[in-house]
Nucleic acid binder design. Structure first.
Length: 404
RNA sequence: GCGUCGGUGGUAGAGUGGUCAAUUACAACAGACUGUAAAUCUGUCGGCUUCGGCCUACGAAGGUUCAAAUCCUUCCCGACGCA
């Protein structure tokens, strides 16, 4: 059922366009994947998501397991449960090893670090009994999560993650990995990578041993942190396994990401799709597409949207700011989204100041549309050969105010 | 007219002799957010500043005191009660 065909490659770059076929329809790539962690893209109905241009949604194994994956299976699977009849993915829970582990309670430690000085690196916390409030504990066989909502203990193994993902029934599922903090030592990165590799094999073996492998595609995840040797080793190891596609994972220092992506994609088999996990700021997306990634997901459009941040062609702004309170224009001039076609910046600022639910909804619709159509446009420009020109124009305008 | 209680920074409302430019909340102003622990979090919020301080402030004016938003006197204003 699962198939990936490359439609066009852009000379001199790793960029390409393609079509992924799944039981629930095709995905034209490169494509931006909307994040629907708990079986909903926060604030948006499936109708909103479709209208914003989203082709595919990614939900989360850890969160839906806590909500009851067996129950979701009984109710007809995740597609039916959330009323999304288009392509659907599930992330494995590997990111929660990081977000509920090394990053838990650490201010400023997130998917992308913004370190100012070398010695500003926060010490990672991987020791299990250090008294700090980590709620994910890793061992060779799996991860013990303590539920972030009620404190109950849950043990994930690679097989368990896949089993849950089988219950959910997404078209594309991910191997259970360990997303490490970039602040971990090289020694730890190496150890974690070996673990992720062992787990990847176990995921693949378990998956292939079931009927689900005929319907659901399984992607393996490359780790290796910021280290060139480990990244390349990971890409080579994963490339040697029979996955349907690959995810590139990890928490990055901003400046490490491009190199890591390039190392991986020069090694990964060209004929399989590559998903850059958790990335979604405009500049990063241009970089990733140029370096050969096909899929991206990111919480930014919806999280920023809920908090008043909106994308415009002239950069990202906080729409609640004073300067927009009497602004009659749309969020982003020329934007075709529902929010921009019907409401003013002044109204958006009003909604955010009044803490009205519609504020986050409209901003999330706009941001999703903005990012999705930006990636759609990249696809068109690769097909027409003008990708680099589009990138230059977009980036110059988007970052103009920050550079001057 | 008499009596009682009260008047605090944009708002509400703490504080009842020094640790008070004054708790807290809200509002306001700005910032952050990249496989969602997040409709969240952070900072600023009297004026000036060479960042050490200085000045002006708790209805108004006097007074007591080394020291007053806090005590006293008078006045103004508000609520309630009695005439």
């Amino acid at each position: 059922m699962f198939k990936f065909v490359i439609n066009k490659e852009l000379q001199g770059t790793l960029a390409r366009t393609g079509t992924i076929s799944t039981p629930h329809g095709d995905i034209q790539t490169p494509a931006f994947v909307s994040v629907g962690t708990k079986g909903t893209v926060k604030g948006l109905s499936p109708k909103d998501i479709s209208e914003a241009g989203t082709q595919v949604i990614i939900a989360n194994t850890y969160h839906l397991y806590l909500a009851g994956d067996e129950k979701i299976k009984k109710l007809g699977g995740l597609h039916k449960f959330m009323n999304w009849n288009k392509p659907l993915m599930t992330d494995s829970g590997g990111f929660q090893v990081f977000s509920l582990g090394a990053a838990y309670g650490q201010k400023g430690v997130s998917k992308i670090g913004h370190r100012k000085h070398e010695d500003e690196i926060a010490l990672p916390v991987t020791a299990p009994e250090d008294g700090l409030p980590k709620i994910a504990r890793i061992d060779p066989n799996g991860v013990m999560f303590r539920s972030h909502s009620d404190g109950s203990a849950h043990y994930f193994t690679p097989e368990k993650s896949i089993e849950i993902q089988h219950n959910l029934g997404a078209d594309i599922i991910f191997a259970f990995d360990e997303c490490t903090s970039p602040y971990e030592s090289l020694h730890y990165q190496k150890e974690a990578l070996e673990r992720t590799h062992r787990w990847a094999k176990r995921c693949l073996e378990y998956h292939k041993g079931t009927e689900h492998s005929k319907i659901q595609a399984l992607f393996g995840i490359i780790q290796g942190g910021r280290d060139e040797t480990l990244r390349k080793e990971s890409a080579e190891f994963m490339a040697g396994l029979d996955f349907d596609g690959y995810g590139i994972g990890g928490s990055f220092e901003k400046e490490d990401m491009e190199k890591a992506v390039e190392w991986c994609n020069n090694i990964l088999p060209k004929e399989k799709p590559r998903h850059l996990l958790g990335i979604g700021e405009p500049l990063d997306l241009f970089m990733a597409v140029e370096k050969g990634c096909d899929l991206f997901d990111c919480v930014a459009p919806t999280r920023l949207g809920r908090n008043g941040g909106v994308y415009t062609k002239d950069g990202k702004v906080n729409i609640y700011n004073q300067e927009y309170r009497e602004d009659p224009g749309p969020i982003d001039e020329g934007c075709e989204c529902y929010a921009c076609k019907n409401f003013s910046r002044g109204y958006m600022a009003h909604l955010f100041h009044q803490k009205e639910m519609l504020a986050g909804v409209l901003a999330s619709i706009h941001n999703t549309h903005f990012i999705v159509s930006m990636v759609d446009r990249m696809r068109e420009e690769i097909n027409s050969g003008d990708f680099l020109k589009y990138k230059k124009e977009f980036v110059e305008r988007y970052y103009k105010n920050k550079l001057t």
